[in-house]
Amino acid sequence: MIVVTAVLIGVAYVVVNSLIREPHRRRFNAVMVGGAGAAYLSGGGFGPVEFAFTIVLTYCAFRGLESWRFIGVAWLLHTAWDVAHHLKGNPIIPFADHSSLGCAICDPVIALWCFAGGPSITDRVRARFTRGADRLVDANRVDNR
């Protein structure tokens, strides 16, 4: 069940972010992954290495302001950090034992979308329905002649 929920959260993140127009969508996602890089700081499961990880993800997020690829890399790095925390028993949400595992499943969904260039899923769905409606209108015109 945790896998399905985590994937659905990743898909929901993509859909909601699809409502943001470019170039703001890419910049917003760079800021989001930069924040994700600091998510484990308060837990301190890996001591000073937590700061090093935050620095690496901050660099990727900064480069992500202009590149979807860097944002995708940052989400995959965060996935690895989630796995490490899950295995150590130091979850991202202290009272939710499997929260890091869920995050490790969710993050690659977001990364794949980023590697695809962060396209607007809502625009694609809207375009598909519009084309379908246009075809229906055209078919009705032919039938009514």
Rank of each mutant, 00 (worst) to 15 (best):
V49I: 11
W113H: 11
V56I: 12
V73D: 04
R128N: 07
M32W: 02
R27I: 08
R145E: 15
R135T: 13
V14G: 01
P48W: 14
A84V: 14
S99E: 06
I93W: 13
S100F: 12
I121T: 11
G118K: 04
Y59T: 08
A39N: 01
V83I: 13
G10S: 09
A127I: 05
C106Y: 15
V33Y: 05
I9C: 04
T79S: 08
G72E: 02
R69F: 15
R27N: 04
E22N: 11
K88N: 08
V11F: 13
V49P: 01
C60Q: 08
L112M: 09
V142C: 03
I105L: 12
G102T: 05
C106H: 13
Y59E: 02
A36D: 03
A74S: 06
V15G: 03
A74P: 00
G10I: 06
M1S: 15
G45I: 02
V49L: 12
S99G: 07
L57D: 06
A116I: 00
I110G: 01
L87E: 15
H98V: 14
R131H: 01
L136N: 12
A127Y: 05
M32Q: 04
D107W: 02
A36N: 07
P48T: 13
G117K: 09
D82F: 11
G47R: 05
Y13A: 04
I55H: 01
S120Y: 08
G118S: 00
A6L: 00
M1I: 12
V49D: 04
L65F: 15
N144W: 06
V137E: 12
L57Y: 12
F53L: 13
I20Q: 11
N140V: 04
P48I: 13
F129P: 01
R145M: 10
H98P: 03
S18V: 05
Y13L: 08
E66L: 06
S99F: 14
V14N: 08
P91H: 00
I9F: 01
G10R: 10
F70T: 06
R63N: 01
V3E: 06
G117S: 00
R124A: 14
R69S: 14
F115M: 00
F51M: 12
E66F: 06
L87S: 10
A84G: 11
R141W: 10
R21C: 02
G102V: 03
G132E: 15
R25Q: 03
A12V: 10
R131W: 00
T122V: 15
M1H: 15
D107H: 10
R63S: 05
N140S: 08
S100N: 13
C60S: 01
S67V: 01
D143I: 07
V137R: 15
A38V: 14
A80T: 14
D138K: 11
V33M: 10
G47Y: 08
R27K: 13
S99P: 11
L136G: 11
A127S: 13
A12S: 10
I121P: 10
A104F: 02
H98W: 14
S18R: 04
N90Y: 12
S99Y: 07
C60F: 10
G118D: 02
V31D: 01
I20C: 08
H24R: 14
E50M: 14
N140F: 13
T5V: 11
P23R: 11
L136C: 10
D107L: 01
A30L: 05
H98G: 08
G47M: 02
D143C: 05
V15S: 01
D82S: 15
P119S: 00
I105G: 05
R26D: 15
V11L: 13
R26P: 15
